[in-house]
Write a protein that binds this DNA or RNA. Structure first.
Lengths: 344, 344
DNA sequence: TTGAAAGCGCTAACAG
DNA sequence: CTGTTAGCGCTTTCAA
């Protein structure tokens, strides 16, 4: 049933030629008589031969394995899925394949996956770094590994980094609310140790500061990991004695949770409360109350990372670069349609 | 700068031991004196040594490469992203890594990616097969490759297959509309050569047949690939002389397009037209007009595929199995809230 | 408990 | 144009 896989030697024997002739045909090298090449091709098809990439790379050492690794936070998150697709397209264009992994925001898991990738001698690594030191990667870079950080910078690592201007995006979003007259703006956010989240909170605070305000601890909740967390926090916050008139949500999951809690049809609905969220998500513009969001382009981020990585693989040795992509505020009226009471 | 990567030989030299001692330490084999093992460990860290997985697999041939391939239609589609994440989790649990690719519904691209995976000697392959013959994979199976088809069956291939009961799901959805009194039900669908889509259309027709009806060519559009296509088709269909009172959409992308066209705030809005779509999507329940959908569990599909694949890799040689997962109708009122005129 | 020798499938370098 | 030889880094086998 399960026969041994055919080798070049087997193909050579069946085709009645030498081993090197098969190698040349398989690699599309010139200098093989058409008739012999045809015999080889036939033998390849007959045996179902596929070149052993491992043996090949072993011999041509120091050469590329035509494989890169991509490590995101959570592949099931549409943002990272879009990023991954862009990376994969860029890789395929260059005949590379992509090893993929999710770190789940765990440094231990990140290291395990990176180690498994390194054992397979990936030429490069695009990673969304979790919090914590990445010094162990510096040594791998000295050994020839190319690394690009996506979406967040990595601690203790000099590497190309492609970021989004989270701070400016958040500032713009909150300024949008301030311009509408909102002065009591609540913050609902994911874990603060995630770089993007802390940047967004900083942008939130900066926007308030420009209006002579500062974040009110009673109007801020951190560490919201899942949609239900966010829904609960939003419901609790607006039940307070002095509730906010508007909310800023740190990311799509939190935004959806807020929508669950406040924009539903139930008795707890508080549709007069304005909302701006970071991250665009499907149908945000088609909700019963359309949500204003800060949109970031995941595919552009992935494409930029891939471009940087393949440039390094191609031999670019210039100093590490940091690229920052801009966000776009998509105003949809969750603040304008329900003008808030302006306080005095 | 870029030094050559250290080998076991280098580690052995630095540690002052034999090559085999290093091999034993690296592989956690017993029978090495603790003192020597420690010296080896130190040398490994000092040099940044990572085992060369390719050389290893070359020697232990016929053995597992601890790598599987996953080929989906489009990784950026949240459905496949969720499937991929489930596969990745299952793989990680077993210390496997995952090579990923998107076929884009192209047989040529599928073959290219599969070939690249085979060259890297993946132990197994989970693929969402595109339309077309997969006989070339049968031979690879004889050579030891384990294959599991996800979401669709593959032509000319005997392999474990995990499907969703698309036909029953569509039948249930359309029956739901019929029970509400709808008799003129339009169909908007993706490419008919995609197996899941044709099954859903069959279910649509079966539901109508049970009520003594048959699909009206004037109320069916196929080949809608992107959201804008679907929006245009929906807008055109409801402008007809005898428009439908309800629509069935073949998948999430089409459903969203229909929402764009009919449930927006614009002048063209036709909110009285009922809609049921295949595939759940984020916020479908929070739209200005919540959409009834047929929900399928992508993560469960991925987990079932992974389970089947790893069972095969572990030596299961029973005949190929076909597993079918059920769907769930999430009725949300897009039919009930706007009762249609019952025709006579 | 340790090491030396052989060889996995392939390609670089050379010889015919 | 074609084939032969050697060796990539590792593990298997066997001897010390």
């Amino acid at each position: 049933m399960t026969e041994k896989r055919p080798t070049m030697r087997d193909v050579a024997r069946v085709a009645g030629v030498g081993l090197m002739t098969v190698s040349r045909v398989v690699n599309g090298e010139p200098g093989v008589q058409p008739e012999r090449a045809a015999r080889v091709e036939r033998a390849i098809r007959q045996l179902g031969y596929e070149r052993n990439h491992m043996a090949r790379q072993l011999r041509r050492q120091g050469q590329s394995t035509q494989t890169i690794g991509l490590l995101v936070d959570d592949l099931a998150n549409p943002f990272y899925a879009a990023l991954a697709r862009a990376v994969e397209d860029a890789a395929m264009l260059r005949s590379y394949v992509v090893l993929i992994g999710s770190s789940n925001d765990s440094l231990r898991r990140e290291r395990e996956v990176v180690s498994a990738f390194l054992a397979r001698r990936v030429d490069g690594l695009i990673l969304v770094p979790v919090a914590g030191s990445h010094r162990f990667l510096q040594r791998q870079q000295d050994l020839g590994l190319k690394v690009v950080c996506a979406d967040r910078p990595a601690d203790n690592l000099r590497a190309d980094t492609v970021l989004v201007d989270n701070r400016a995006g958040a500032r713009e979003a909150v300024t949008h609310l301030l311009r509408q007259g909102h002065r009591r703006i609540g913050y609902l956010g994911d874990r603060e140790d995630i770089w993007t989240i802390s940047e967004r909170y900083a942008g939130f605070a900066e926007a308030l500061a420009a209006y002579g305000l500062s974040p009110d601890p009673a109007l801020a909740r951190h560490g919201l990991r899942v949609r239900a967390d966010a829904a609960g926090a939003a419901a609790a916050m607006v039940r307070q004695a002095a509730p906010p008139t508007a909310l800023f949500a740190s990311n799509d999951v939190v935004t959806m949770g807020v929508v669950d809690a406040l924009y539903g049809a139930g008795a707890a609905a508080r549709r007069e409360i304005a909302l701006v969220g970071f991250d665009e998500f499907a149908m945000a513009d088609k909700l019963s109350l359309p949500v204003t969001v800060v949109s970031q382009d995941a595919a552009a981020l992935g494409a930029a990372c891939a471009q940087a990585l393949f440039a390094r693989i191609a031999g670019d040795t210039s100093p590490p670069r940091e690229t920052t992509l801009v966000t776009r505020l998509l105003a949809r009226g969750s603040g304008e349609v329900n003008p808030p009471p302006v306080e005095t």
